[in-house]
């Protein structure tokens, strides 16, 4: 079955790679100025769209501006609604940039979680190590950027607890993830420290199944679905913008709910 997340026409990722220097060259002040320059946008929607890359740059600039607005709207103490365990969908919905048939299971026995960046204790972690930390269970709604949603029940160590435990610099800007399926992702520190952001190892009280990220995946109630990388293999705490798989293809980076 084709992943419903996959667009009909996937644009050539090289387009973004080719323009990365240009995208990077926007400074924050410039972004905000461009973001507010909506008059320019109006003209761009008119007839003279000879340079679509100019339109794309403008839209990306506004998207970065919107990321800042989203960060302002984010209330670190606001909890997402939770639901009774009876409403948990079993099994959860599968979603990735490839088909469920193409999932490559990860060996939990040899799996290690690597740490890097602004973290005091960077020793790798086993799944038993993670499960020895205080656990939390949340029953929350998963909301996909496409529009569909379902209620899922997740158990794991809160990312906040984990980051404190390993001595991460909690004033850093980003927490970045690498995964076994080559799906880099990253979130802002405020969302990483939110009480409903877990390094999940169980779904509906059972060990996470292979298609859903065994042995460990990120599950946060305050981000859209695509900000929840599965089969996490490495965590980095950094101040350098790490980006992500869909973000480099045009989706919003903040993607907060």
């Amino acid at each position: 079955m084709r992943s419903p997340f996959r667009p009909d026409d996937v644009p050539d990722p090289a387009i973004l790679d080719n323009h990365r220097p240009l995208i990077k060259s926007f400074e924050r002040r410039g972004l905000i100025r461009r973001g507010l320059s909506l008059g320019a946008l109006v003209m761009l929607t008119g007839c003279d769209v000879k340079r679509p890359e100019a339109v794309e740059s403008a839209l990306l600039a506004i998207s970065r501006f919107n990321d800042e607005v989203q960060a302002l709207l984010f209330d670190p103490n606001k909890l997402a609604p939770t639901y009774p365990a009876s409403m948990i969908l079993k099994p959860p919905k599968f979603n990735a940039y490839y088909d469920v048939m193409d999932v490559k299971p990860v060996n939990g026995a040899t799996w290690r979680l690597e740490l890097s960046g602004l973290i005091a204790d960077r020793r790798p972690w086993t799944i038993q190590d993670l499960q020895a930390l205080p656990q939390r269970t949340i029953v929350i709604k998963h909301i996909c950027v496409e529009g569909w949603s379902y209620i899922g029940g997740w158990t794991g160590v809160p990312l906040r607890t984990f980051l404190q435990h390993v001595g991460a610099d909690l004033r850093a800007k980003y927490v970045a993830f690498k995964t076994a399926d080559d799906y880099p992702s990253s979130i802002d520190m405020a969302s990483a420290l939110h009480p409903q952001t877990l390094l999940a190892t169980e779904y509906a009280g059972e060990t996470l199944a292979d298609p859903f990220g065994y042995p460990m995946r990120l599950r946060t109630a305050v981000k859209l679905g695509y900000k929840n990388p599965k089969w996490v293999t490495a965590i980095e705490v950094t101040n350098k913008y790490p980006g992500g798989y869909w973000e480099s293809r045009g989706f919003s980076w903040f993607a907060g709910l």
């Binding site: 667009p7 009909d8 026409d9 996937v10 644009p11 973001g35 909506l38 946008l41 109006v42 794309e56 403008a58 839209l59 990306l60 506004i62 998207s63 919107n66 950027v145 496409e146 869909w246 293809r249 045009g250 989706f251 919003s252």
Partner: peptide
């Protein structure tokens, strides 16, 4: 927008124009 990501970007740019 030629696919969802760009439709979303248009939508979240247009929202400022519409709302303001």
């Amino acid at each position: 927008g030629d696919w969802a990501a760009w439709s979303l970007n248009w939508h979240f740019a247009g929202m400022w124009l519409l709302a303001i």
